[in-house]
Design a protein around this nucleic acid. Structure first.
Lengths: 235, 235
DNA sequence: CGAATAGTGTCTATAAGACAGTATATC
DNA sequence: GATATACTGTCTTATAGACACTATTCG
């Protein structure tokens, strides 16, 4: 079918349109493991199965507004930076009907994420094995099957995150306002899946000029020298 | 409006859905300038104004298939690599109705692009001034106004292209099968908007191990030493 | 003081810019 | 041989890894 024939058969005001959703990949780090937020689906199809928090996009609602709405209502989280990830548009990705999903990525410090866990909302461990991504419930060795193409969406998020880690300030979204260089290094190591050199990492981070020493030290009463707390200059 | 209230009012099978289009940013390089393909719109609104080639996505057509269809029918180009760029979903980006557009990026050697220029399909010079992007018809100093948010889409494409240049093989899409290292360097310089060091560039490119010497030399009868022609190992 | 981590100095390896030199085509 | 560009060798600089060392806090 060429363009002329297609236009004859496709009048956008008369013919069927796809539905559009947004889905959120909300990542957090617990100890040395990445986790992603999953919610139990409250409607058909795949009722009671786990998937990414998402919603249909309203006809007078921008994609960003829809993503922010999901963040608040389905994820239960306060406003924070979301970045558009990719748009998934395979014809059969949802069995009920044609749905195109615009995925957004957000990173959440565990201190914040922890507070919103409920019976139907939790974080699953991400086990990234080369290009494959598997999920398992926290404290379990079982694997979790996700609905639709949600595993593929999470794999895309992980690839994007690794790619941006070095030149963007996205990693700071996983940390509280004040953090130590050790915590920042652990975030980088968990995302990249490998150990990093301490002096080189420190120099590289401090040379960005974006880390502001607070003059405060970490507390906790451990039997070792407490580290300086830093903030990041946003913008 | 919280999620529960929203779901009561939004039944995806009954309520209005957005239309979805794909738009293509097709870039080429002529001498030392980037150009983007524009087509004269053949329908309302903005009839006869210039914009990116695009189409509505069919209800049983994947996003990629729609992009490939535009490439063939509206751009008149043979099949080539297209990469999803970004999805633009502001509510008022199109005056007729709610349209969400998924933008795709493709790079075309001028040797190929040149052949498909017609009265209603041409390439405009991109004048990138910091974060602003302006377009002018070839051989003119005037500026061209694009319909909708198409200038923003082109700016996004340029940013993406610069970001991927170093670690991906996307630049080779702008060159014919066989090319010289000088031509490859010019492609990089035009995209980045700055001059590069020749020995360093050569070493970096050859060290990737992806450049295969053909044993052929460039021809053309110019009064200087002809350069070796290379191919790139795809994959 | 012992323990454990914070933080730094030094050496080495690698990569890229600057610059100038040699090589090789055509005219 | 003149010319213009291809291609390379060398020096310098910046960055990161490896490794070990000193510093600091708490029990």
């Amino acid at each position: 079918m060429n363009e002329t024939e297609f236009l004859k058969t496709y009048d956008p005001s008369a013919f069927e349109r796809p539905s559009v959703t947004v889905d959120l990949v909300l990542l957090t780090i617990v100890r040395d493991r990445l986790r992603v937020m999953l919610v139990e689906r409250d409607q058909q199809p795949a009722l009671d199965e786990w998937g990414l928090p998402g919603t249909f996009v309203g006809i007078k609602e921008s994609l960003e507004d829809a993503a922010v709405r999901v963040l608040g209502t389905k994820a239960g989280l306060p406003s924070r930076r979301l970045e558009q990830l990719y748009t998934f548009g395979a014809v059969d990705r949802d069995p009920r009907m044609r749905i195109i999903s615009v995925a957004y990525l957000g990173l959440v410090p565990w201190e914040v994420a922890q507070a919103v866990v409920t019976d139907t909302r939790d974080f699953a461990d991400i086990v990234a094995d080369e290009s494959e991504v598997h999920l398992s419930p926290p404290g379990s060795d079982e694997w979790l099957e996700l609905t639709f193409d949600h595993s593929e969406i999470i794999a895309t998020a992980l690839t994007r995150l690794r790619g941006k880690l070095d030149w963007s300030d996205i990693a700071y979204d996983l940390l509280p306002d004040a953090f130590t260089l050790r915590e920042l290094q652990i975030v980088h190591e968990v995302i990249l899946g490998r150990r990093l050199n301490k002096p080189a990492f420190r120099k590289r981070m401090l040379d960005t000029g974006r880390l502001i020493p607070t003059g405060q030290r970490e507390s906790g009463g451990a039997a070792f020298r407490p580290a300086e707390l830093y903030r990041v200059a946003r913008g």
